[in-house]
């Protein structure tokens, strides 16, 4: 607790505008889902609003940081804040992994008549549990025709994402030692790898839908597949955008060896996304 006096930021119009933007986006999405296209303008305006406000809000924070308004204490507050935010994201994914494990370990075997709770088998006596579940119990649910091989695109994506964590670490080390050229090259490479990952994921989704019949509607296998990989993919997109912002900031000469929390936070986030992918690769694709 250095210095003796605290820094308290001034009031700001961004939070309230962000609330309005987020509210409009949620309302618009609800309208689109329930009442159709009529809600589209509200949703898009809300989405644009929230993106714009977040950009401006972070811009203010960056400017204040550049002006040297933040002391070590503020820096620690940001660190705690980002750390616990990532923990909340971990729990978000934990719910989805929990779903996957529960379905595979309990729900499907019970539907197949296994164990003391196997009375559920009376619903569909012909049902056979298996994973990946190609033949869901209900007649009205069409399962996938085949599953994706983990040793094809998913393996490539694993290498890409693990590689990107390494390149990011190299960039971070460069930043700590003040080698700006190293940071620019390796951070640029990281962003590129992130974009490759997203592109490959897109190709894989296309294959899944067109050739394998793996869709959101294809029973629990398709549902968990897209739930886990979809939310992970969304996080990779967000992470890539964050890293791009960091790249721009590096080009503009931001950050110093002792003032680089923005970069570090982005790195934490990226590593978190990477770790989630390892879990996905193992439990969604391989096992």
């Amino acid at each position: 607790m250095s210095g003796g006096s605290y820094y308290v930021p001034a009031s700001s119009k961004w939070p309230i505008l962000a609330c309005i933007g987020l509210g409009a986006m949620m309302l618009g999405t609800g309208l689109v889902l329930v009442y159709g296209r009529a809600g589209m303008p509200v949703m898009l305006v809300g989405l644009a609003g929230i993106v714009l406000v977040m950009a401006l809000w972070f811009r203010d924070v960056v400017l204040e940081s550049r002006q040297g308004l933040y002391d070590n204490q503020m820096d620690r507050s940001f660190r705690w804040g980002m750390g616990w935010f990532i923990f909340s994201e971990v729990m978000f994914f934990a719910a989805f992994f929990g779903t996957l494990f529960y379905v595979r370990t309990f729900a499907l075997p019970w539907l197949d008549g296994e164990g003391a709770k196997g009375v559920a088998a009376l619903l569909w006596p012909d049902f056979n549990a298996s994973w990946p579940l190609l033949e869901p119990p209900g007649d009205n649910v069409q399962g996938p025709s085949a599953t994706l091989s983990p040793w094809h695109l998913p393996l490539v994506n694993t290498l890409i994402l693990v590689g990107s964590s390494i390149t990011l670490t190299v960039a971070h080390e460069g930043l700590k030692e003040g080698h700006r050229r190293v940071v620019r090259h390796w951070l640029g490479l990281t962003v590129l790898l992130g974009i490759c990952f997203i592109a490959i994921q897109g190709v894989e989704y296309r294959e899944a839908y067109l050739h394998y019949g793996i869709t959101l509607q294809a029973g629990i296998y398709g549902a968990t597949f897209f739930l886990l990989t979809g939310f992970h993919g969304a996080h990779v997109i967000i992470g890539s955008v964050i890293l791009m912002v960091m790249l721009v900031r590096v080009y503009r000469g931001h950050f110093a060896p002792d003032n680089q929390f923005g970069f570090e936070a982005a790195a934490w986030y990226w590593h978190f996304v990477d770790v989630v992918w390892i879990g996905l690769f193992l439990f969604v694709y391989v096992f």
């Binding site: 889902l33 934990a94 539907l111 579940l133 869901p136 649910v141 509607q217």
Partner: peptide, 30 residues
């Protein structure tokens, strides 16, 4: 735990609007 709540209501939303079967035994959910 709030993220877990967010997760479960997201799965509800998918079941309602996107035809997933997280909570529908006919699709292998529960």
């Amino acid at each position: 735990v709030m993220p877990v709540l967010a997760g479960v209501i997201t799965m509800m939303l998918l079941d309602i609007h996107f035809g997933t079967s997280f909570f529908n035994a006919a699709g292998g959910g529960d």
